[in-house]
Design a protein around this nucleic acid. Sequence first.
RNA 1: GCCGGAUUAGCUCAGUGGUAGAGCAACCGCCUUGUAAGCGGUAGGUCGUCGGUUCAAGCCCGACAUCCGGCUCCA
Length: 670
Amino acid sequence: MSPSAPPAAAPVSVTVSTQQAGTTAGEVLRAAGVKDSAVARIGGQLRDLAHVVHEGDVVEAVPYASEDGRAVLRHSAAHVLAQAVQDLFPGTQLGIGPPVKDGFYYDFLPERPFTPEDVAAIEKRMEQIVRQRQRFSRRVVSEEDARDELADEPFKLELVGLKGSSSDDDGSSAALAGGEETVEVGGGELTIYDNLVGEELVWKDLCRGPHLPTTRDIPAFRLMRTAAAYWRGDQRNAQLQRVYGTAWESRDALKAHLTMLEEAEKRDHRRLGTELDLFSFPDEIGSGLAVFHPKGGVVRMAMEEYSRRRHVEEGYEFVNTPHITKGTLFETSGHLDWYAEGMYPPMQLDAVGDKPGADYYLKPMNCPMHNLVFAARGRSYRELPLRLFEFGTVYRYEKSGVIHGLTRARGFTQDDAHIYCTRAQMADELASLLTFVLGLLRDYGLEDFYLELSTRDPDKSVGSDEAWEEATAALQSVADASGLELVPDPGGAAFYGPKISVQARDAIGRTWQMSTIQVDFNLPERFGLEYAAADGTRQRPVMLHRALFGSIERFFAVLLEHYAGAFPAWLAPVQVVGIPVHSDYDGHLLAVADRLRRRGVRVEVDTSDDRMQKKIRSAQRAKVPFMLIAGEDDVLKDAVSFRYRDGTQENGVPVDEAVEKLVAAVESRA
RNA sequence: GCCGGAUUAGCUCAGUGGUAGAGCAACCGCCUUGUAAGCGGUAGGUCGUCGGUUCAAGCCCGACAUCCGGCUCCA
């Protein structure tokens, strides 16, 4: 996402001499010829350049263009934002203003929400503050003084209070949301930063720092958008107005970031879905419910066909289950206890007179249905692992504000499988499952993965400690064996068991959660699932849940954005377009197309009365992988000329050769 | 669900209280010879829906729907 960092030279590091003792970190670094240090690192702590050093201190430069340097300059930019807002809207109360990925934000409680015009004015005021070269001056304060100075800032006072009431850092972190709080009150002492013009105090804010020396040192920033945010991330708290900005070490870096955002916008699957005529979300159907048009439908078909083939090869068996069921099934599974509010409300059917009927629900998950397939007859250990697979469409009543194109929908199709195995088989099964998952994702063109291990949330889970530990250990060892980076996600598990999720990075470095693999001891229990073991006893199977794509719609969206609409030939809705140089050559291309179609290639010939150049433009915009152009030269030689999607060409290719070449390109899934 | 913004032709968007516009796409006609837009014409909109203010509403107000950006959520 971010522009590549400059060549990684080791940061300059200086040991403070006797003569330098009592000067500042900034002076020490300047003396060593360092000009691009945002702050200094001393004893592992980031400090202002104005920090007074002692003999023997090791002062390390922190370049603007480093992770820490950017965080500091963004934090300073957040301060300038807050100052600008309070200049323009006196009485606006301050929340928090931390640096975040690619930028910063500051939360405010203004008298009225900010308008776009307000934001433009705020940005202008920020530029003035930057030009004023205000000095950020650090001052340690007692809790009492802080309360006094911050009497008009109730949110800041709350932070002071939280700090005061907690005995250690862990306590204060737990009391606040997300680790952002330390920007205000972390560390050992309370500090206030004064903004000085000359010696005149023009603004101040409770802040741990560190900061750039002056506002003028903020190299490049821009305000991005406003949004609402709950105070300390809690829905029960006041709703604040958040202003987001981005800030960088140089104008070029800012420009590169904005260009990247434009690129991401061009790739947005909702935009491409319309442009390429792949799918839509008709209002008449309802929010979050997609229809796939023919071009989207054929891509989806290609995705599904390949997945089916691979599942057959891996020993999966295919089942089909209904979309709707009596509520008793979800009582058995526990969904109605745990997730009723995520489900569409029930419809009441079969009432007779005053006798109530049954509640029927749309299914939010496929697993209960698959359990019924397992339980349909007696099972033997000889059948295990039993792998049941289904493209199962599920419906979840997502809250209105969270719906987002195909990636967060209310109806979607999971490539869902449930594997029933013995405890002894579990480890091997998980290992081969992960290999299968990663291999399949690679086949679709994703290459760069890491894993996330979601473990138990004690408040939102069922089952014994021992079972959780066993399952977690099994997943952990599989994850370790994969050699992939593993990120812990404590408390992120589903209520019935821990999970590994595969995260994939796309072509422009964004990460998407793809496959999940979950271990479940709980549902087999609830459903009373059993198999006959070799010794004749009845045993309970372990159940593994897994979806490779997550949902087909979502995976479709991820691939669409990953490829920016330019699908590889095997997935492209139209793989080949024939373009005659003149309508006299339509027949030649129609014959070639006919041969290709018989070989399973999706091919069209553009026989419209547009001119050739226009046809090329149309095919190019439709992101068709191969154009076959034919004019007099080609027809005389029984040949065609290729134009590839990147604009390169290969002229006069004999038709026989061209057909084989195209068939090979499609079949190789290149 | 919450806060803010948006909704005008299939798409992208102009239109600040006085008889609805453009480009592209579609359709028709003429044209067509080598790698990203040939020319001309035709058709297409109860301006998201419902209600209100006004002599008059695409424009002002309200409710609802949908979308967008966040927050919260995400089995």
